[in-house]
Design a binder for these strands. Structure first.
Length: 372
RNA sequence: GGAGGGGUUGGGGAGCGGUCAAACCCAGCAGACUGUAAAUCUGCCGCCUCGUGCUUCGAAGGUUCGAAUCCUUCCCCCUCCA
């Protein structure tokens, strides 16, 4: 399933093959929680060279429900996306919907935020759902540990995730898709290592680092990624869940991570926070009102090739949905181009100079936000 | 000409004697967002020498300890009747 093509330091250049084709790593997966990458079509995803997307087990269970997806012939067919799909298990919702769920050894009971309905998820059901959706990569049900968490809390949480991982592994039964385990352990290196060791014994097709970017300091994110990624199995994909900013991704690739997903490019696009080669542009700021420049002179995306900052500013101010679409196209292009450049640098063995140039550009930016 | 209704901080629109520099919405300005309850949320939004400071609620007078709120006159606007 995973082919390692080249290495540059700890960084890896690889390829993951699935039932719906292969994708190149390091890879970024645009997020399509409800079976749609917000504001853009699969056709656009193709045009910007997205090779795999992420969707969400919990949210799809809530709406439209697995029956409807099966009625439509599975998630790929339902959303008309013929390339790989990875689904998050709902483990993140254990964290993000903490106030609306109860967790026990058996599983998680959610009170739907929509109508208060009780929704139950345990490892077995989670596997059944993801297989019914027909996704290419399923994730084990885990408990995304919040930050801050005392070491004892993080340990209990990590152990629970480990037990759930085992149940997930046992319940998962598919020759068309693969299952990834998720490392937890908060910001504690020892716990992270224990978690990884426990998961390795269950032999997953890939391994993920979860429970980061949940509010912890940047240093912790870097420290844990640096410690754990190199210890993850060499011939299996390594996935850092929910990360992150462009710089987070660059740093994690340097540490040996292969796969990423994050809502940042899509959500920020809708909120007018745009990544460019010169730094972050907040398109709704008055400074862009009169600018006939393209958003990013160095970008070849549809948005930058055809529209001015002034126009994007106007779309944002008038709440035109085209603004969301154009800005999402741009931000995702920025991310996907970044991944392509990272892959090329690793192949050429020039990752360090790429990172240096990347950091310089961002450090020289007038906008300090670009580095965060 | 007669009878009503109304003029409030950029726009809309509450308020109808003190707790009012004046609700709320929009516009405007800025900030946040990391496995998406997010095309969302938060803050600011009369002036200044930032204080139990100053100037505001069509205008001018008045009543009152105190007025956006009550009275008088005037100026506008709207509806209806002639």
């Amino acid at each position: 399933m995973f082919k390692l093509i080249a290495k540059d330091g700890e960084a890896r250049r690889g390829e993951v093959s699935t039932e719906h084709g292969t994708f190149q790593t390091p890879a970024f997966m645009p997020v399509g929680t409800y079976g749609a990458v917000k504001s853009i079509s699969p056709e656009i995803l193709h045009s910007i060279n997205a090779e795999i997307i992420l969707s969400n087990t919990y949210h799809l269970m809530e709406r439209p429900g697995v029956d409807i997806i099966q009625l439509n012939g599975g998630l790929h067919n339902f959303m008309s996306w013929d390339k790989p799909i990875l689904t998050d298990s709902g483990g993140y919702q254990v964290f993000s919907l903490a106030k609306k769920r109860k967790i026990t050894e058996e599983g998680v009971e959610f009170n739907s935020a929509l109508n208060g309905n009780k929704l139950f998820l345990n490892p077995e059901k989670c596997m059944e759902l993801q297989q019914s959706y027909g996704v290419d990569i399923a994730m084990v049900l885990d408990e995304c540990t919040p930050y801050p968490a005392e070491i004892s809390v993080a340990e209990n949480s990590m152990q629970l995730s480990l037990r759930w991982a085992e149940r997930s592994r046992d319940a998962f039964n598919s020759n068309k898709s693969s299952l990834f385990g998720i490392i937890q352990g908060g910001v504690y290196g020892d716990l992270r290592e224990q978690s990884l060791e426990g998961l390795k014994r269950m032999d997953f097709e890939g391994y993920a680092i979860g429970g980061l970017s949940v509010g912890e300091p940047k240093d912790d994110l870097r420290k844990i990624t640096n410690l754990i990624a190199p210890k993850m199995p060499v011939y299996k994909p390594r996935y850092l869940m929910g990360v992150g900013t462009p710089l987070d991704i660059v740093k994690a690739v340097e540490s040996g991570v292969d796969m990423f997903d994050c809502v940042i490019p899509t959500r920020h696009a809708r909120n007018g926070y745009l990544y460019t080669s010169e730094g972050v542009i907040k398109i709704r700021n008055a400074a862009n009102k009169n600018s006939v420049e393209p958003l990013d002179k160095e970008c070849d995306c549809y948005t930058c090739q055809n529209f001015s900052r002034s126009y994007l500013h106007h779309l944002d101010k008038t709440n035109e949905m085209l603004g969301s679409t154009l800005q999402t196209i741009h931000n995702l292009t920025f991310y996907l181009n970044l991944m392509r450049n990272l892959r090329a640098s690793i192949e050429k063995g020039t990752l360090q100079s790429f990172i240096k140039r990347f950091e310089e550009t961002w450090n020289n930016s007038d906008n300090p936000n670009i580095n965060t």
